[in-house]
Design a protein around this nucleic acid. Structure first.
Length: 485
RNA sequence: GGCUCCAUGGUCAAGCGGUUAAGACGUCGCCCUCUCAAGGCGAAAUCAGGGGUUCGAUUCCCCUUGGAGCUACCA
């Protein structure tokens, strides 16, 4: 069996979006699983849409995701160049071959003329399709005009009868009646190929055996096969992958604020969690399991598990995966990664980050939610007195005031203001005064945090705050409760 | 509109003629607990509709409906 070669071929029109990342991931997994070669090719034939710096962004995202490629623009290989604009001179000769056999023809219609005809067709309520107008120009004349420097494009000459088809590894046999197919442009007036042509030529020249790409190409692939036939080339095995949706009717798009891989990374999603989640979006392993490292995915990946229908990107589940990865992260790593986020809210406050990290580790879903969760340590948030009333804790403003009044001097006189002594002190005090534990702990926690829930209980927070700040906040609570009474 | 494709809970999905129709997220209970998380236990929730084929359809075929993709000198 010959060696498997796959490629991921993005256009540099911006950052790598999640759908693209998933295609890249599956392509990578398939190559690695089959001990094949994974190639990165940049499809930049549409110069107008190209975004400066996007190529580098793609390299970066691939690297961050761990999708290392064996051949590509920045790593080299025997089938280069791997950027289509750098291959520009190579396409025309192939197109000329098609001209000779009649599988393609030059077209001199201008964009304006085409637009007019298109508009006229829509006005009549018809679907515009190129009418092969220039196909009928005598060959000599066409040749003369091409050589004279008149702008022209080269179009694929689709048969007017019959069907075109191909076999997809996922979708099976796909075919389309030729008369519904348009004579697409293969070579544009600027001399560069369109995707329709470049993908065929490059995939063949680069020895690609398996083409994995989005289903947006599913309906045009029969046309590509016509090209393979015209050249007498062996078409690759196609695996079209369903799109990733943002909801039931819209696909995930970078156009309307949907996050890119880079965005998610910046928001504090763990890359392993993103990869893991993305992998399961449209693919299901044979075994009942959902946590996979990249190498484990390589091992488990099989085409059979691919789904044919579009999958909705479920942010909630990503968040869950992320929180799981964070929980499984060694504590030291958590501390290291959480610290910058602690800093955002607590810089210069002298909070014990290590202890805070211990409390936050199991409570962190996404890192960018951390600052808000710990900000109360820097500044007591404004809170309503109703917070002191808690049915289950059996507290109300009265019991709370009493508890705070008792706690105040006890805490002020506590020799060691660390957690265990704090706990012994407060709980002992409660018991001795005939209060339930909650009747002491709840008001204290409310007074010193101003929040209904916090990462950690009263004693942990008191410790993190330190004696001075704790007492100051309790005083505020006492004053407010007395003011109300 | 035309062409192509898809269709199991709210979401990701297993299933590949006979199952009590898995599992996960989310939701909702209960337990644990100095709040909230985490953790433990449990619950509700799915085969889009209609025809066939078959002893028997979630599973195979057709139609309807719904959805997606394509319909550019974009990829």
């Amino acid at each position: 069996m010959s060696e498997i070669r796959t490629r991921f071929a993005p256009s540099p029109t911006g950052y790598l979006h999640l759908g693209g990342l998933r295609t890249a991931l599956y392509t990578y997994l398939f190559a690695r699983k089959n001990k094949g070669t994974f190639i990165l090719r940049i499809e930049d034939t549409d110069q107008e849409r190209e975004v400066p710096g996007a190529v580098e962004l793609i390299y970066q995202s691939m690297r961050e995701a761990g999708l290392t490629y064996d051949e590509g623009p920045d790593v080299g290989g025997d089938y280069g160049p791997y950027i289509q604009t750098q291959r520009r001179d190579l396409y025309l000769p192939w197109a000329m071959k098609l001209l000779e056999t009649g599988a393609a023809y030059p077209c001199f219609c201008t964009r304006e003329e085409l637009q007019e005809r298109r508009d006229a067709a829509t006005a009549r309520g018809e679907q515009f399709k190129y009418d092969k107008h220039c196909l009928h120009i005598p060959r000599d004349e066409a040749k003369r005009r091409m050589e004279s420097g008149e702008p022209f494009v080269i179009r694929q000459n689709i048969p007017q009868t019959g069907t075109a088809s191909f076999e997809d590894a996922l979708f099976g046999h796909v075919e389309a009646p030729c008369d519904t197919l348009d004579d697409n442009v293969l070579i544009k007036a600027d001399g560069l190929p369109t995707y329709n042509f470049a993908n065929v030529v490059d995939d063949h020249l680069m020895g690609i055996t398996h083409v994995m790409r989005g289903t947006e190409y599913l309906s045009s692939t029969p046309k590509y096969n016509l090209l393979y036939e015209a050249f007498g080339w062996q078409p690759p095995t196609y695996v079209h992958l369903p799109v990733v949706m943002k909801d039931a009717t819209r696909k995930l798009s970078k156009r309307y604020g949907d996050p890119s891989f880079e965005d998610l990374l910046a928001q504090g999603y763990v890359k392993e969690a993103i990869i893991n989640f993305i992998a399961l979006l449209g693919w299901c392993p044979k075994e009942e399991r959902e946590f996979f490292t990249l190498p484990e995915l390589v091992d488990a990946f099989e085409l059979e598990g691919l789904s044919k229908s579009p999958a909705i990107f479920n942010m909630e589940k990503l968040v869950w995966f992320n929180s799981e990865y964070i929980k499984r992260m060694p504590f030291e790593e958590y501390l290291r990664r959480a610290t910058p986020w602690f800093e955002q809210a607590l810089a210069g406050r002298g909070v014990d980050y290590r202890r805070l990290a211990e409390l936050m580790h199991s409570r962190t879903e996404v890192f960018n939610r951390v600052p808000e969760m710990v900000r109360f340590l820097a500044e007591l948030p404004p809170y309503e007195l109703e917070l002191y009333t808690h049915k289950k804790m059996k507290t109300d403003p009265e019991t709370s005031l009493r508890a705070l009044l008792l706690a105040r001097p006890a805490l002020a006189g506590l020799a060691d203001f660390s957690e265990e002594p704090l706990k012994v002190c407060l709980m002992g005090l409660a018991e001795e005064q005939g209060l339930k534990t909650g009747q002491m702990m709840w008001p204290v926690r409310v007074a010193i945090s101003g929040l209904a829930n916090t990462p950690g209980g009263a004693t942990e927070i008191a410790y993190l705050l330190g004696r001075d700040e704790t007492l100051r906040r309790i005083d505020i609570g006492i004053a407010r409760l007395q003011g109300q009474a």
